[in-house]
Write a protein that binds this DNA or RNA. Structure first.
Lengths: 185, 185
DNA sequence: CCTGCTAGTTCATTCAATGAACCAACCCGG
DNA sequence: CCGGGTTGGTTCATTGAATGAACTAGCAGG
């Protein structure tokens, strides 16, 4: 599987679950095009230059997941368009964060990169994880990982999953992995 | 190519460029594990359950791009660890946004999802695109797309790229694509 | 009736992911 | 100094997805 969509071993993680929805090749670029205002099959096709079969499959998948909605905007001749749902529009922070990260750390000179400004004030966007209570940006080092609830099913038994359930623990702290029960490293 | 890494047709877009760095299958999950505190080859391996060859290739790639650093933390026996660079740590908002999006829109009941809290105040994180000037979250509809600079090389000629260069334009506004010069739709 | 446009489907080929096996360096215990 | 265990890989046959080209279908307009 190539950038296949399942990550069966990662059932405890929302990020992995998200990647099952949008992590396949081309999918995020299709969503980006939706934000650009692209709505028609043929426009996605000419802009992205991907195989038609892949485009069809991805669009159908995104509709099925509720990220896009396919709707008829004209009856004669029948024409369909793909538009972002509320869920799809809510994906914007992910793309904004990705674009901001690349702009800062992987900018390649000599390319005509588009930029994104806050229209009213013409300021370049940034993207943060945010704490609604403190009302400020939260760096990874201040984030606590909280293991998921105990459920009747069997939890993952690999040493790393076990260590992550031992919590509490913050991001970026080295994880102490104990292979089989004794201390390591 | 399966979630291959190049998107040659998308040279004008920082998001596509970012996906060339981290968009391949497994790569973002490796980064997530780095934030979890995983550092050793064998720990990535047991936790992710991916083929060793893929893990080796992805780690080498991330090091080459400057996202991770491979360093020896012990000489006898020689042991290596992979840690996030400044660039790698700056990727956190992308993962946070992805996790928050999934939590809100694609939560599957019956899974032991980990959650992420701002440790000092125990508040669940959100993620936004942010305007440093207005100091507030910026929804997609308020964002202006600014075409990249004019450069000596040949710009993309597909109708969608042409339409995007006509700007100014906001995200989510339907893009008027003119196939070959006459109005469409 | 003929042409063109949109929105696909089908299919042979290519290339990456998978998974199992193998390998090498090193430590430790006997 | 021999054998077993751990770490950190590499190699390779197999599978399955992406690619790209060809083909199809519905409909409008002339």
């Amino acid at each position: 599987m190539a950038l296949g969509k399942d990550y069966e071993s990662q059932r405890d993680c929302t990020m992995a679950r998200g990647l099952e929805l949008v992590g396949e090749r081309w999918t995020m670029l299709i969503l980006r095009d939706c934000f650009y205002g692209v709505r028609r099959y043929s426009d996605f096709f000419v802009h992205l230059g991907l195989p038609r079969a892949v485009l069809s499959e991805r669009l159908a998948n995104l509709c099925e997941q509720g990220v896009l909605e396919k709707r008829r905007y004209q009856d004669a001749p029948p024409r369909e368009e793909y538009v972002l749902t509320e869920m799809g529009e809510a994906f914007w922070p992910v793309l904004a964060a990705l674009g901001a990260w690349t702009t800062k750390f992987a900018w390649e000179p000599g390319r005509r990169y588009r930029t994104f400004l806050h229209d009213p004030c013409e300021t370049r966007l940034v993207a943060y994880a945010h704490c609604p209570s403190c009302d400020r940006a939260v760096p990874a080092a201040e984030v606590r990982i909280v293991p998921g609830p105990d459920l009747p099913d069997q939890p993952a038994t690999d040493p790393v999953s076990v260590a992550l359930r031992r919590g509490p623990k913050r991001l970026l702290e080295p994880l102490i992995v104990t292979p089989g029960g004794s201390g390591a490293r």
